[in-house]
Design a protein around this nucleic acid. Structure first.
Ligand SMILES: [Mn+2]
Ligand SMILES: [Mn+2]
Ligand SMILES: [Zn+2]
Ligand SMILES: [Zn+2]
Lengths: 143, 143
DNA sequence: TCTTTTATTGAGACGGTTTATCAATTTCAA
DNA sequence: TTGAAATTGATAAACCGTCTCAATAAAAGA
């Protein structure tokens, strides 16, 4: 009956490897997190206040950061607040962001990634991560 | 005898167009800024403390933001603090950042830029700005 | 030049976001 | 079931950058 069995497994494996514990809060937060594409800690805090009014904001932050370490989430800095990006069932991707309505479109482009590697190696670098964000207007916002 | 005549002209033109005034502080900060490739407000604050111990941090922030509006600088968010990028004598560019030693290498790649446009138009977007940062290790840091 | 208007400055208060602290509680392996 | 160790929630603190406001400086006008 429980949802997100696979991701819950990923989390438990990470917990096991690092002597961390599986708690009611971590389960609750993961369930809520996986229903979203991108979410901030505050948004999650308000959203979960109904299910558990005692859940603290610090716990949300700690847990979302834990998900990042476990490879389920990735922190992004589109605006003023950190957005936690659900990457559990998709690989790496980049973003198109509409400065009009705030819409975020995810994309992947191997050609760009390949050219990035080229630039890096030409400069003697080995890339670990990168960030590519395209800001502009979506077609509804353009008129 | 004064340096940075051309950039000082760009600043004065911007000031004129916006009913702003040319001050001793703005001249001092521009001179210092143009000697750098990337600098934070705090760094500039400490650096200028010798020349003018009364110069306030708020003035530095205000002035660097003014340079951005005048097209002399561009704000970047590599790490925790905002880096002001000197773009007075170069056009748009992106960055390679070494997570080992903090070295920053600037680059331009038209092929990547073209592919970005392609991705955008395929999604109905018109791009205004973008941010591309490659994080990794430079060759000295790799061993 | 002298006067008047208007923008700027510096000091510090303030605001928003995230992390640190710590006593009480919960987890989990033995 | 016990006890060591991790976690939690409340809140303080850190951090970075902006705002406020009275004093000052710049530039436009007479
Ligand atoms: Mn995403
Ligand atoms: Mn640069
Ligand atoms: Zn839009
Ligand atoms: Zn390096």
């Amino acid at each position: 009956m429980s949802k997100h069995v696979k991701e819950m497994g990923v989390l438990k494996e990470h917990l096991g490897k690092h002597q961390l514990k599986f708690t009611r809060q971590r389960e609750l937060i993961l369930d809520a997190f996986l229903k979203q594409e991108h979410i901030t800690a505050e948004e999650m805090y308000h959203q979960l206040a109904r299910k558990d009014p005692h859940l603290g904001l610090a716990t949300i932050y700690r847990t979302l950061n834990l998900f990042c370490e476990a490879g389920l989430a990735q922190a992004r800095h589109f605006g003023t607040q950190t957005q936690y990006d659900n990457i559990s069932h998709k690989g790496h991707h980049d973003h198109l962001i509409c400065t009009g309505c705030g819409k975020i479109v995810e994309f992947e482009n191997c050609d760009i990634e390949r050219l990035q590697e080229e630039v890096a190696s030409r400069n003697g670098f080995t890339i670990h991560t990168h960030r590519l964000e395209l800001y502009g207007l979506c077609s509804p916002c353009r008129r």
